[in-house]
């Protein structure tokens, strides 16, 4: 095979430079800065810094509002991951049954769902609007006077529903393509071996989807933890009050509202370690991913 050779050995590095610069400026430098400032007490008005060791960390994790946020984040993540995966799988199985062997249809559906997530997020938030939100009106019919942004659990449940709703399309696509990649012959052999459709699902289809499910689970945990900032922010309209917050949102609150840069840095470092751990787990999973061929 013909190989393209660069004239100068420096040239490839030059090409890499813009990407490297972006990583350095927007990721490495802020991360390093966060780690550094997590060991200092910052004076927000005069910019003086005092080294305080791990005080910021001990302060952060022992405060009761941190515990509350951590607990809510955990609950939030479990609920969102479980329901967004579960509902997406249900929809994917239904769609898969309709689509079996009907190619053009499939691509069309994929498109719709690929476009959907940002739009779905916006719609979801609108649905819970205190004034025009139909879901709030709907629950009111059952005597549930939802006060999103005011009541702790009302806000929490609204966040969970919108976050779940927003993630379903992504999961749906992965599950659907996972289902479609299960060989037709295997399904047919199963239909000869097992008279029960639900039995076939749990003993054949679901195990064959396991690699997809593991992968999605990690993605969803990461999503619920870190990428729901916008949803929380819009729901609370920047006024946390008595509302539940996620850990990521709390970093923002403490740093920019509470002007506690040191404490907020310590919290973000903890989150960085967590995301690092998740990433390692994910890579391990991908490496060990069983290839059924």
């Amino acid at each position: 095979m013909h190989k393209a050779q660069f004239q100068s050995p420096l040239y490839p590095y030059l090409l890499l430079l813009p990407q490297m610069a972006i990583v350095a400026i927007f990721f490495l430098w802020p991360s390093a800065e966060a780690v550094r400032s997590s060991f200092f007490l910052q004076d927000p008005f005069f910019g003086n810094e005092t080294f305080v060791g791990i005080d910021n960390y001990t302060d952060a994790v022992t405060r009761s509002d941190y515990g509350r946020a951590a607990w809510f984040t955990f609950l939030f993540t479990v609920v969102v991951t479980f329901f967004s995966l579960g509902i997406a799988l249900l929809l994917a199985v239904a769609a898969d049954n309709v689509l079996r062997g009907q190619g053009p249809y499939k691509t069309l559906l994929m498109w719709v769902y690929a476009i959907a997530p940002p739009v779905a997020g916006l719609i979801g938030i609108m649905l819970f609007d205190q004034h025009i939100g139909p879901i709030v009106d709907f629950f009111a019919l059952f005597g549930w006077d939802m006060r999103v942004g005011v009541d702790y659990w009302d806000s929490g449940i609204a966040m969970m529903i919108v976050a779940t709703w927003k993630q379903i399309p992504v999961n749906f696509i992965f599950f659907l393509s996972g289902l479609q990649s299960i060989p037709k012959g295997v399904r047919e052999a199963a239909s000869i071996d097992n008279p029960s459709a639900s039995g076939r699902f749990w003993t054949i289809i679901f195990p064959l989807l396991a690699p997809t499910s593991f992968f999605l689970m990690i993605i969803n945990i990461t999503y619920a933890f870190f990428e729901t900032f916008g949803i929380v922010d819009v729901m609370l309209k920047g006024e946390p009050g008595n509302n539940p917050v996620t850990l990521v949102y709390k970093v923002f609150l403490d740093g920019f509202r509470g002007n506690d840069l040191g404490g907020s840095s310590a919290q973000s470092v903890i989150l960085m370690v967590f995301v690092l751990a998740l990433t390692i787990v994910q890579f391990r999973l991908i490496e060990r991913r069983v290839h059924y061929t």
């Binding site: 060989p183 012959g185 295997v186 047919e188 052999a189 199963a190 000869i192 054949i204 195990p207 064959l208 396991a210 069983v290 059924y292 061929t293």
Partner: peptide, 11 residues
């Protein structure tokens, strides 16, 4: 039935 590509359960 015996299938052309065997259709064994891979897991």
């Amino acid at each position: 039935m015996v299938f052309q590509n065997y259709a064994l359960y891979p897991h």
